[in-house]
Design a protein around this nucleic acid. Structure first.
Lengths: 191, 191
DNA sequence: AATTTCGGCAAACACTTGTTTACTGAATGG
DNA sequence: CCATTCAGTAAACAAGTGTTTGCCGAAATT
């Protein structure tokens, strides 16, 4: 049923999805839906969890790896690129519903994204470049990274479905931007 | 009719909007809709144009102003804050439909945002800080700024509807992030 | 003054929708 | 082996849907 929903959400958004539509796609009767979810919103938050589970392991795999700034950036962008390719449907779902019309789903995504930022913040604190940084500054940097990741992922997704060469360009731009932020980080004097 | 649509899109997205719904809200008969638009998608792109007209003047008012980096940042964030407050419905519409389920609307928004980035890029080229920068680097910086603006606006909107004190925090974070980028800019060695 | 366009209406068409109800067979657990 | 939970069904409900059609009055053009 989740798969059916995800498949339909490829070119639709949750608010316009119908119970009957989902069950039809899943090859079930309409009533069967209510055996599993009270709402379509509930199906939505289930999909959020499914989508972010894979994201979590991705983030960790980037942060765990040590190394110079350059390698870290290259590796981060690579991982994002791969992730978008391998989980297109989930990424599209998240991008679409992050500001979508269903409040509960929006909140679920936002909460999880906040947890990401916190996790990134902790990892940043361990890097030598961050010596002397206040918690506030670390937080704002973490948010900047997370937002940038989300933007990049969305852009990559849109590009890869239209014109794969544009995806390369977007990845390259993302690397440059991360490099710029990295430079800013090295010369940061605190707020 | 546009107003009616915009009003309904406060807690719904375009894909789930109905012709009858719009005409009912506007106090007209269903058939009247087709006198003005062939599609709901057409109404959507009309709203896109309406929404981005005001954004355009906003951007210019920031870029025109000269001054030190600090004042420019403060001014930019102030203008965004004001804009979000004054055009909540339009901003929400853009945030929601940017990755929404209606292709034509998505494309309209993306195209216009691209034009923004180009405009910002030209303005950046004129600033003394950018001496010696390649077109590519200027472009990536412009995109970074535009993406950051969009993220900030979305976050502000979400916050201001829930808890106005959180909006202050978001604005402060945005200022810090812009400052960090600004530092990176000053020490950039080219790509 | 005549004609055409414009913006509006009511009614009708054939569907699709969400949700509930009563019912059924299979798996599961005591 | 019996009872219960689980996951499914068909049928029915009232209500809402997009779109077309033919019609009408006012405004604008000629």
């Amino acid at each position: 049923m989740l798969d059916a929903g995800l498949h339909l959400l490829a070119d639709q958004n949750l608010a316009s999805l119908g119970v009957r539509e989902v069950t039809r796609e899943a090859g079930l009767s309409p009533a069967a839906f209510y055996r599993h979810f009270p709402d379509l919103a509930a199906l939505g938050v289930a999909l959020v969890e499914e989508s972010l589970a894979s994201l979590h392991v991705m983030i960790r795999s980037v942060l765990a790896e040590a190394g110079g700034a350059e390698e870290l950036i290259d590796r981060a962008v690579d991982v994002i690129e791969r992730h978008v390719m391998d989980h297109r449907a989930h990424v599209r779902f998240l991008a679409r519903e992050r500001h979508g019309g269903v409040r509960r789903v929006r909140e679920a995504i936002d909460a999880e994204l906040g947890r990401f930022a916190a996790e990134v913040g902790e990892a940043l604190a361990l890097q030598p470049v961050s010596r002397g940084w206040s918690g506030r500054d670390l937080g704002m940097l973490a948010e900047l990274y997370v937002d940038h990741m989300v933007s990049t992922a969305s852009a990559l997704l849109e590009a890869v479905e239209a014109d794969p060469t544009r995806a390369q360009r977007i990845a390259a731009t993302a690397r440059l931007q991360l490099r710029l932020i990295s430079v800013g980080r090295r010369h940061w004097q605190g707020s």
